[in-house]
């Protein structure tokens, strides 16, 4: 499977993601530059964490208008895989590929810590290697990770089982105390209705090795590799410009 990791000005987890994909998972992973439009034939585009365009105006607001994002939106519309981590999640919300928005943490503090997450839905290409209700540990590091959406959208997300990961305590309860940033319904990660676009605030690329931070995020990547191999999700063929 071929992966592309986008580098925006201000991205800082792009190389961690490339390392996780290339060194740890043995994947074919290439770097994609924000000014380009060519996705180099990748099966999944990963938008990494960081501070694209200095988080000016709003987190992810500027990155959304970079040339590469035109191709990313087009890939997503065709059913291709698009995955946003942290700032990447913010970009996907700003681009309208995922519903809702991410605002300043309730505490107003930048939070860098491992969190417990409950895998809420396993019938997605991103979580098929987990069991429903499983608790995993992945770090977060963000200042604007409080997920919000209007009540109707929130209800739809829950009803369609699009909430994939939720912040929980060590016994698996989604309590206010276990919620690091004030996200509605303790939401840490969601998929779109078609289940080919995934956004989450925690950093799975920082949780792929026992030696540093554990392996809680490993199976998110392995899930997508499995889904791709199964061919259950295949994007439609690209439409040539002008057709």
């Amino acid at each position: 499977m071929r992966w592309g990791v986008v580098t925006f000005p201000g991205s800082n987890d792009d190389h961690d993601a490339l390392y996780a994909l290339d060194h740890v998972l043995g994947q074919d992973a290439v770097s994609l530059w924000h000014k380009e439009r060519d996705l180099k034939g990748v099966d999944c585009v990963l938008l990494p964490g960081g501070f694209s365009y200095g988080d000016y105006l709003r987190c992810g607001a500027m990155a959304r208008f970079s040339p590469i994002m035109e191709s990313v939106v087009e890939l997503a519309r065709r059913g291709g895989f698009v995955w946003g981590v942290c700032n990447g999640f913010q970009v996907l919300c700003e681009a309208g590929l995922l519903p809702g928005a991410l605002i300043r943490n309730r505490s107003l503090q930048f939070i860098c810590t491992p969190v417990q997450l409950r895998v809420e839905e396993t019938e997605t290409p991103f979580t098929n290697q987990y069991t429903r209700g499983e608790i995993i540990s992945i770090p977060i590091k963000h200042g604007e990770g409080c997920y919000i959406a209007d009540p109707v959208t929130l209800e739809q997300l829950e009803e369609n089982r699009q909430v994939v990961l939720r912040y929980v305590d060590s016994s698996g309860r989604a309590t206010p105390e276990a919620n690091p940033n004030g996200a509605l319904n303790n939401i840490a990660g969601i998929v779109n209705a078609q289940r080919n676009v995934f956004g989450l605030m925690p950093h799975p690329e920082h949780a792929v090795e026992k030696l540093v931070g554990g392996e809680g995020g490993l199976r998110l990547f392995q899930s997508l590799i499995t889904a791709h191999a199964d061919g259950t999700h295949r994007p439609a063929a690209a439409v040539a410009p002008g057709h």
Partner: peptide
């Protein structure tokens, strides 16, 4: 389109 995010 840019200056404000209608969601928030």
């Amino acid at each position: 389109r840019l200056l404000a995010n209608g969601v928030i």
